[in-house]
Simulated assay, not measured.
Amino acid sequence: MPDANVTLVQGDITEQTVDAVVNAANSSLLGGGGVDGAIHRKGGPEILAECRRLRDAQYPEGLPTGEAVATTAGRLPARWVIHTVGPVWARSEDRSELLASCYRESLRAARGLGARTVAFPAISTGVYGWPLDDGARIAVATARREGEGFDEVRFVLFDERSYGVFAAEV
């Protein structure tokens, strides 16, 4: 598959005009810090309301790591938010497949919605401690492998360092 649909941008994921924005959520689906908090704050109460319904109906124990579920995007310029829970990095255990699953399952959810453009953050590379270079390698490889049929799979990197690390993988 050609890599032309994998793109990078340095910026704010809440400002991306795409069909679906991926949220690096916590398992509660009820908001938090980092990307999750920013998406909930800027997207407004509609996102939280749908997340609460999902918790009540489908995920009473929370969304499992590596899975993905979609909600409205509320006031974001996207149509949907796809919430996925990334793994916490551990030196003693290889959780790479769980991280790849976040990207794969998010793309599957986006495909099911009919999304043509998807924007991802660098899942698990913030407070969850995943090494940025390895996270970028897994993210880009999974997007290349699983991104068929999308017009664009965009990685939105918050800072120059992250952008540079992802650019080395693209």
Rank of each mutant, 00 (worst) to 15 (best):
P2M: 08
D3S: 13
A4K: 11
N5G: 09
L8N: 06
V9D: 06
G11T: 00
I13P: 05
Q16P: 08
T17K: 15
A20R: 06
V21S: 04
V21F: 08
N23V: 04
N23K: 08
A25W: 01
S27V: 00
L30I: 01
G33D: 15
G33T: 13
G34P: 12
V35A: 07
G37A: 06
A38V: 00
K42E: 13
G43W: 08
G43N: 10
P45M: 03
A49W: 00
E50N: 12
R55C: 13
D56H: 05
A57K: 05
A57H: 05
Q58A: 05
Y59D: 07
Y59I: 01
P64G: 11
P64C: 15
T65D: 01
T72N: 15
T72Q: 15
G74L: 11
R75Q: 15
R75C: 11
L76I: 11
L76Q: 14
P77Y: 09
W80D: 03
I82T: 00
H83D: 04
G86D: 06
V88Q: 15
W89H: 15
R91P: 02
S92I: 05
E93P: 01
R95N: 10
E97H: 12
L99Q: 08
S101C: 04
Y103L: 11
Y103I: 05
R104L: 02
R104Q: 04
E105H: 11
E105I: 00
L107W: 02
R108Q: 15
A110I: 03
R111T: 09
G112D: 14
L113V: 02
G114E: 09
R116Q: 13
R116E: 09
T117E: 07
V118W: 10
A119N: 07
P121K: 08
P121H: 08
A122V: 00
I123Y: 01
S124E: 05
S124H: 01
T125E: 14
Y128D: 03
G129I: 06
P131F: 06
D133K: 10
D133R: 14
A136K: 10
T142Y: 03
A143E: 04
A143C: 13
R145A: 15
G147P: 04
G149D: 14
F150A: 10
E152S: 04
V153F: 11
V153Q: 09
V156E: 14
L157P: 09
F158P: 13
F158S: 10
F158N: 11
D159T: 03
E160W: 07
R161C: 01
S162C: 03
S162D: 10
Y163C: 12
V165K: 06
F166E: 00
A167K: 15
A167F: 05
V170W: 13
